[in-house]
């Protein structure tokens, strides 16, 4: 079983992603924005972050930059899941240090395939 953080300001999206991820047998922690994610993340081991871009307080780009520049979370894989898909968004995500980029709404099988590839699947 892996531990996966879902960071998104939309409760509905968090719920949707949570159910998909939990269906693979993983443990999920939710955060509403980058700051909350960092607060909840420190001091634990993580296998993957699913991160929205447009969020209040601390957006996804900054969250990833903070993770990469810090010590504890620097190597934790991050998949951006954003409604934005304008050119330049991907480049920004790459520059910040995100490992993958998905566009909302993500097909269930797509999200699960990515999670499975990076974090495996528990109980199988």
């Amino acid at each position: 079983m892996a531990r996966i953080m879902i960071v998104d300001d939309a409760v509905t999206v968090r719920m949707y992603h949570r159910e998909l991820v939990e269906a693979l047998g993983h443990q999920v922690v939710e955060a509403e924005n980058g700051i909350e994610a960092l607060e909840k993340a420190l001091g634990a081991d993580w296998d993957l972050f699913l991160v929205d871009i447009n969020m209040p307080k601390m957006d996804g780009y900054r969250l990833v930059r903070e993770m990469r520049a810090g010590e504890e979370l620097r190597a934790v894989p991050v998949v951006m899941v954003s409604t934005e898909a304008k050119p330049g968004d991907r480049e920004q995500a790459w520059a910040a240090g995100a490992n993958h980029y998905l566009v909302k709404p993500v097909r269930p099988e797509t999200l699960q395939a990515v999670v499975r590839a990076i974090a495996g699947e528990a109980g199988a």
Partner: peptide, 17 residues
């Protein structure tokens, strides 16, 4: 991602991830 230039302070973390 690795091809995209980035700020120095995230370089190590990015490579590790």
């Amino acid at each position: 991602m690795l091809r995209t230039p980035c700020a120095a302070e995230v370089w190590d973390g990015r490579l590790a991830s």
